[in-house]
């Protein structure tokens, strides 16, 4: 673990990513308790530029952009997190089953995963959300259901390479149950690769939610960054601030996750670091 921190700290870009991510997470968790205005109330004139009263200006209906941005941070990150959690849970379970069971079950699951990867994800998500209704539950479920294959394939390959190794064979020879072998021996070893995958899934989910909301398939009950961009599109030339800050929020969060994922990935590849 100390070795991990030692190498991690040397990767300045990954550290920067982690710092931004922590800040955004804190903003998402704590921020909404300290909102300057009610994010749903019309508290000013429409499209007021940034001022002391409204540091990020007001939107087309006179709502405070800062308040909506902070709430949007919580909504976007929560949706991204829950969707990524869904896909990881699904992917790890299915990948573990495929890798552990092998044979026909493995074949079936992997063909399914491949088929899912051929389907155009964004367009399928669009159809599903349009048909089943744009609620956060549906959006989270749809993103999770469409994103599991890469996690499943990763988990499966980790299982395949790990389960034949000596210590797993030894542990099984000791008579431990399959579940204990999976949870105590295999998963902890697969963890580094899965953590990188989780960072990518998280950033991917945030992007997908933002894109869906941007094309008008957002849940209007709470504002997300994508929804703010959707309403900003109509008034872009009159009120840049309505688009700028949520756009910045998406960019910073996604970039932070990608940089972090990249850094962690490099660390697992000692070959790349040796020279």
């Amino acid at each position: 673990m100390r070795d991990f921190w030692y190498h991690f700290r040397k990767n300045r870009v990954a550290v920067l990513g982690a710092e931004i991510l922590v800040l955004m997470t804190l903003l998402a968790i704590i921020g909404p308790f300290f909102l300057p205005y009610d994010p749903f109330a019309f508290v000013g004139l429409p499209m007021e530029p940034p001022s002391l009263q409204h540091p990020l200006g007001t939107d087309d209906l006179g709502r405070d952009v800062l308040a909506r941005f902070i709430l949007g941070t919580r909504v976007s990150m929560a949706v991204g997190f829950l969707a990524a959690a869904t896909s990881i849970l699904l992917g790890v379970s299915l990948g573990a089953v495929a890798g552990y069971a092998g044979g026909l079950i493995d074949q079936l699951l992997m063909r399914t995963a491949e088929f899912f990867q051929v389907l155009p994800q964004f367009f399928l998500a669009m159809v599903l959300v349009a048909l089943f209704g744009a609620s956060y539950a549906i959006i989270i479920l749809v993103i999770g259901l469409l994103s599991w294959p890469s996690v499943a394939r990763l988990t499966r390959s980790e299982f395949l390479s790990l389960r034949e190794r000596d210590y797993v064979t030894a542990v099984r020879a000791l008579g431990l149950s399959t579940w204990r072998v999976i949870f105590q021996e295999i998963l902890p070893n697969a963890a580094p690769a899965l953590i990188v995958s989780a960072a990518i899934q998280f950033s991917h989910a945030i992007l997908l939610e933002a894109a869906l909301s941007f094309i008008g398939l957002g849940d209007a009950s709470y504002p997300s960054w994508g929804q703010m961009l959707n309403s900003a599109q109509q008034i872009l030339r009159q009120a840049w601030w309505v688009a700028f800050f949520p756009g910045l929020g998406i960019f910073l969060t996604v970039a932070a996750l990608n940089l972090l994922g990249d850094g962690l990935n490099d660390m697992q590849n000692p070959k790349l670091r040796a020279l």
């Binding site: 950033s203 992007l207 933002a210 894109a211 941007f214 961009l229 900003a232 599109q233 872009l236 030339r237 840049w240 688009a243 700028f244 756009g247 998406i250 960019f251 996604v254 970039a255 990608n258």
Partner: peptide, 13 residues
């Protein structure tokens, strides 16, 4: 990392 619609809006502005 920057979504095309975010970049697009900024470039348009």
């Amino acid at each position: 990392s920057v979504p095309v619609f975010v970049l697009g809006q900024m470039a348009l502005l």
